[in-house]
Design a protein around this nucleic acid. Structure first.
Length: 443
RNA sequence: GUGCCCAUAGCUCAGCUGGUUAGAGCGUCGGAUUGUGAUUCCGAAGGUCGCGGGUUCGAGCCCCGUUGGGCACCCCA
């Protein structure tokens, strides 16, 4: 009787990452780090676990946040973070004294939510957040849009649209209509506009708040505006004219859209969409979501906005800010579906074949020479038939192979084979690194 | 958390109204080819039909539960 084996399985909504998925994953993280750094955001990290009271704050309950919550070995009530913003609020409250303002950070890390998994939705996923806190300047709002734009552009995910809106514009409208007290329900209904349509939204508004359907339709009138940002703003002007907050929001949106346009953001990539409401209640100003043109139903792959009191729960110091988040795993699910992921199974650029068994040292030595020249090289471990070794390179999609037996070793030359083209060159040892580099550049 | 659909070899799937030893393609491994891969040819391995229970003379197929996946609500990256 052998020992019964334990069924290997991962938890629902949790996943393994094979090299073919992990390599593009790291490429995106690398792209995000580059763009964030270029704009002056600094990296930080925080613990995966926090005191539950920190994460729950005042509003919201445990099931609302879909928390993984438990008691630790010391009897503390702890939970796994469900986003990076709340931990950042705690972090800022605790550390802003030594950091100073304005403070710009980025944070790339996994978060956990015990919600039902679906397409592009997992229980463990990585967010790539960036925020600027300690300034009310619209410069930071504009920069936030630029960062999202540059990052998605760099990743090469195809066409996308960043849809922006402003919380106070909606509130201004509600104020003018005398509906401010119902803003939460109304905004939640409004958020569903693209999905369920105008009539259903009006119905939900009436059902949940008891407002007259005529007023609900007026809310929709603003949200349903389509077209160029300038035109929409022009239309919206009169709808919020009696609200001071609304007018401020209006000016902010105008400044943001104009700045983006002047800076050179393509007009199809930034649109004003007054139906965007965002579920999260801490947003108070600019809000945005980003959709892929080819896969709009994947949901927003990057979203964020401005808040005027990030850390009010944890400190008396008022910290306003603006930021965004890129959903790495949702983005990867989209890339996967669009068949835009490279089929790469290794990072090696060249495979050194172990042709002659007792010449291993020569093969490892040349591999190190390549490493020192910045080339990713590996030596096949066994002196199997060359066809087997080449097949390994094939499967891993390694583009080059280095083949040398006794004859070449005696002459101090190497056979460099390009596995994509089948071409083969005889290269003297001292020219190998540069020849390999030249070959790689041509791929 | 509620409702619905799905689960057969590493992958994609076939398997008739429940009826003997469960199949294919691709992949893997070995060989044709002891100095050259992704083509071709030959051969092999690999499944307690997700798991547990029930109905039945008999279950991959029917019923219940459970785990995992998908879709719609909900929420969101």
């Amino acid at each position: 009787m052998s020992t019964p084996i334990i069924k290997p399985q991962t938890l629902r909504g949790f996943r393994d990452f094979l090299p073919a998925m992990m390599i593009p994953r790291l490429q995106i993280i690398e792209a995000a780090r580059e763009v964030y750094s270029q704009y002056g955001f600094s990296p930080i990290d925080t613990p995966a676990l926090e005191y539950t009271e920190i994460l729950l704050g005042k509003g919201g309950n445990e099931t609302d946040k879909q928390l993984y919550r438990f008691e630790d070995q010391g009897g503390r009530d702890v939970s796994m973070r469900f986003d990076l913003t709340i931990p950042f609020a705690r972090f800022a409250a605790q550390n802003i004294g030594v950091l100073g303002t304005p403070f710009k950070r980025y944070h790339i890390a996994p978060v956990w939510r015990g919600e039902r998994p679906a397409r592009g939705r997992f229980r463990e996923f990585v967010q790539c957040d960036f925020d600027t806190i300690g300034t009310d300047s619209l410069a930071a709002d504009i920069e936030t849009i630029l960062v999202v734009h540059d990052l998605l552009d760099k990743i090469g995910i195809g066409e996308f649209t960043i849809r922006i809106n402003h919380r106070q514009l909606l509130n201004g409208l509600l104020e003018q209509l005398g509906l401010l007290e119902h803003s939460k329900e109304l905004l939640r209904a409004l958020d569903k506009l693209p999905k369920i349509g105008k009539e259903a939204v009006v119905k939900e508004m009436v059902d949940t708040t008891g407002v007259e359907s005529g007023k609900a339709e007026q809310v929709l009138k603003l949200a349903a505006l389509q077209g160029e940002p300038e035109a929409i703003l022009e239309e919206a002007r009169s709808l919020i004219s009696s609200s001071e907050l609304g007018q401020q929001a209006w000016s902010a949106l105008q400044e943001i859209t104009q700045a983006c346009s002047n800076i050179g953001i393509a007009s199809n990539r930034l649109s004003l969409d007054l139906s965007i409401a965002r579920g999260l209640d801490y947003y108070t100003g600019l809000i945005f979501e980003t959709f892929l043109t080819d896969l709009p139903d994947m949901g927003s792959i990057s979203s964020g906005g401005r808040y005027d009191d990030l850390a009010g729960l944890y400190t008396k110091q008022k910290l306003s800010g603006v930021g965004g988040s890129l959903g790495l795993d949702r983005l990867l699910a989209a890339l996967d579906e669009m068949k835009r992921l490279d089929e790469v199974a290794t990072t090696s650029q060249i495979l050194v074949l172990r042709f002659v068994e007792n010449r291993l040292a020569d093969y490892q030595k040349i591999s190190r020479v390549l490493h020192q020249a910045g080339i990713a090289s590996e030596v096949y471990p066994e002196a199997k038939a060359l066809s087997k070794q080449l097949k390994y390179a094939d499967r891993k999609k390694i583009p080059l192979a280095l083949i040398s037996g006794e004859d070449e070793l005696a002459q101090n030359v190497w056979q460099l084979k390009n596995l994509r083209t089948g071409n083969q060159l005889t290269v003297p040892a001292d020219q190998l690194a540069e020849t390999v580099k030249a070959e790689l550049n041509q791929l």
